[in-house]
Design a protein around this nucleic acid. Sequence first.
DNA 1: CTACCATGTTGACAGTGACTACATCATTCA
DNA 2: TGAATGATGTAGTCACTGTCAACATGGTAG
Lengths: 206, 206
Amino acid sequence: MIEQPYHHGKLREALLERAMATIEEAGVDGLSLRQLARDVNVSHGAPAKHFRDKQALIDALALAGFESMNRLILNAAQSSDDLRVRFVNVGKAYVEFAVARPALLTVMYSTKHHPDSSAELRSTGEQGIHVAQAMITEAQEAGALAAGDPQTLAMVCFVSLHGAALLAAGKHLDGTTVEDVVVATTDTLWAGMAAGVPAAQLSQAP
Amino acid sequence: MIEQPYHHGKLREALLERAMATIEEAGVDGLSLRQLARDVNVSHGAPAKHFRDKQALIDALALAGFESMNRLILNAAQSSDDLRVRFVNVGKAYVEFAVARPALLTVMYSTKHHPDSSAELRSTGEQGIHVAQAMITEAQEAGALAAGDPQTLAMVCFVSLHGAALLAAGKHLDGTTVEDVVVATTDTLWAGMAAGVPAAQLSQAP
DNA sequence: CTACCATGTTGACAGTGACTACATCATTCA
DNA sequence: TGAATGATGTAGTCACTGTCAACATGGTAG
């Protein structure tokens, strides 16, 4: 018999790690604090010492998710000298992350978050957009892209890739490959930003 | 005293209607079959006669959501003679729906669905893409858009608008207005499809 | 050495989804 | 006409969940 010490020692990390696995296997709804405690050989009340709420645990998962996602994105943003290639690679990195950990992505962008952690969550979650915005500004200055508000354009790119990521993660891309959609999306966006939007075309109501 | 008849008469509709309201107020997690039954003045076992599962109720919500969304999209797709304006209007309609009923949209695109209703759900949910694809094909034939696989391009547009819709619904559009993002997204996509993607640019790995 | 406090345990409580057995009622058919 | 039948609603139960409060353990600072 192995003697279990009264104190686990690294309960918080163990819970987070196991919870990460669980949500990918069974979704966020399949996550139970009591089952989690059982999985880690700890009493059902123990998790409360590290996470006030179930929601607090989920917030921690979301934060960790953003951090590891940001690492991937920042990495992809330094992957090439060609700005357009870097742009595509960032898109690929985002979508790859989404496909690898779909439940985590859902948690990250779930609306319900505790107001406390919300601040940290928000700022960490916004980093991806800032990367995109920097790339666009740089490309505009280099003359590769037409003029246009970088903040709005970055949001457009983020929004589009986010949609691709979510639908790919949810297997909602019917006839098309994930790879195809990402490449086509980034290519189309880049072409659109390169061409610019004719002023005459600025969408008016019908 | 008002005498309650033993049989409700329209329980199924009443449950769906109340559930629609509840998920928008409290999210899907805030939806409880027992509370739902209380809200409609019915015993806690009654809903089971109309929905085998809680998931079956949620599936019905999703299906109803797709149907009412499709109505809005089809409507927007006939809103103008100008193809590009129609394109923008479809995007606006989609995002407006998402902002008006964010929880419902989440339910619609939630991964977990019963395999039975899943078939009907899928086909109903794909209608939006078909509308987009038809518009793109028409625009290509009219010479307004460059050549390119319409299915992939439709998926790109759908994916992008979907992202805009979800992020708008979740209030994740930070500095930018919903309207701005939708217009900028549709304009950029249209410009990209009009310009076409230079063959030399077809994204290769770094 | 002792007092403190973070960490873990145990027991309790109300609420939930799902199941079963039973009650009520409208419709069908002899 | 009137009884059988099946759809609909009720009532009770079960295992499970999240949260709370009271208590146990043990490392550490004074």
